[in-house]
């Protein structure tokens, strides 16, 4: 329990530090949201008026303390560009990203683990060799080259799936596929290597000597491999939940990645801060859950 609280406090400290660092960096970076809102023609008076109205004329320290006080109250502020609160923007963009993240992570976790363990089980056989070549190719087409190729095949040549936009189940398939291919290839390699690492230990030989079938042994070794695999899944999940900027841009999906990208482009400080708070909290949360799960799966980790 004490360990848990310590870990929680350290996470909280890291989040606060990360968000504070971000607060100052985006404000010190060149580019001015006020000039972007008003355009190049605006007069100096208009600029200073709007700046005062948005509270950007105060000193950085004053802005920072306001920001921190508001965060403690649970207020993320209002977007400088869209006349909407950051929390409403976040909840409007979250569903698309969450749907995309959970479908692609669930699929790739099962596909990657299954193929990887099976490849390890069939080491140096046809299945393993084919799997290695396929995963090598899957990892050599980054998302921004894979996605256009998939669009070319499924939307333009075969004409069975829509190119972009978001709404129905059909729209989810191509972006999910774009993410599942590299994610499951990574997991496949991780679980194969982990399986081969674990399979040569003495207790597996004991099981063999006791006469367990190879499938029974496979299942027991898989259980030992799960924590490592889950750690990688956790990294993938936290990355994808933070918004898959490129996938969302290509398929025109109104998700967190798109929100963050627009926010940075426009210097929409409150929006960028909101997205980053969201993604750091997600990052910590996912790690907490995975650490907990791993301790249940393999009690040896606790000590």
């Amino acid at each position: 329990m004490e360990k848990l609280i310590k870990k929680f406090l350290y996470s909280l400290f890291t989040i606060v530090l990360a968000v504070s660092a971000l607060f100052f960096i985006i404000r010190l970076a060149p580019g001015d949201p006020v000039e972007k809102i008003l355009g190049a023609e605006a007069s100096a008076v208009e600029i200073s008026d709007l700046r005062a109205q948005l509270g950007l004329d105060q000193s950085l320290i004053a802005q920072y303390s306001n920001f921190m006080i508001n965060i403690l109250k649970g207020e993320f502020g209002e977007s400088l560009f869209k006349k909407k609160s950051v929390s409403s923007l976040l909840s409007a963009h979250m569903p698309a990203t969450v749907i995309l993240a959970f479908t692609s992570i669930t699929l790739s976790a099962f596909i990657g683990t299954f193929l990887g363990i099976w490849a390890g089980f069939k080491k140096k056989k046809t299945f393993d060799n084919a799997g290695r070549i396929i995963s090598l190719f899957a990892l050599s087409f980054p998302i921004f080259s894979l996605a256009p190729l998939l669009v070319l095949i499924f939307s333009i040549k075969l004409n069975i799936l829509p190119v972009s936009e978001w709404g129905s189940l059909k729209h989810v398939i191509l972006p999910t596929l774009t993410l599942v291919i590299p994610l499951s290839a990574v997991l496949m390699r991780v679980s194969r290597n982990k399986y081969l690492e674990e399979v040569n230990v003495p207790w597996v030989q004991v099981l063999e000597a006791k006469g367990l079938s190879s499938i029974q042994i496979l299942l027991r070794v898989t259980k030992v491999c799960l924590p490592t695999i889950l750690n990688v899944v956790a990294i993938q999940l936290s990355v994808v939940l933070a918004g898959t900027m490129i996938t969302e841009t290509i398929f025109d999906i109104p998700g967190m990645g798109m929100l963050l990208f627009e926010g940075i482009q426009n210097r929409d400080y409150p929006v960028v801060q909101g997205v980053i708070i969201y993604s750091t909290v997600i990052y910590m949360l996912v790690y907490f859950i995975v650490d907990y799960l791993n301790e249940i799966i393999d009690p040896r980790i606790k000590s």
Partner: peptide
């Protein structure tokens, strides 16, 4: 590690 690396890259590039 916490920040999406693309965000850091974009921020540094704008600096």
């Amino acid at each position: 590690f916490i920040f999406p690396s693309i965000l850091i890259a974009i921020l540094v590039m704008s600096l």
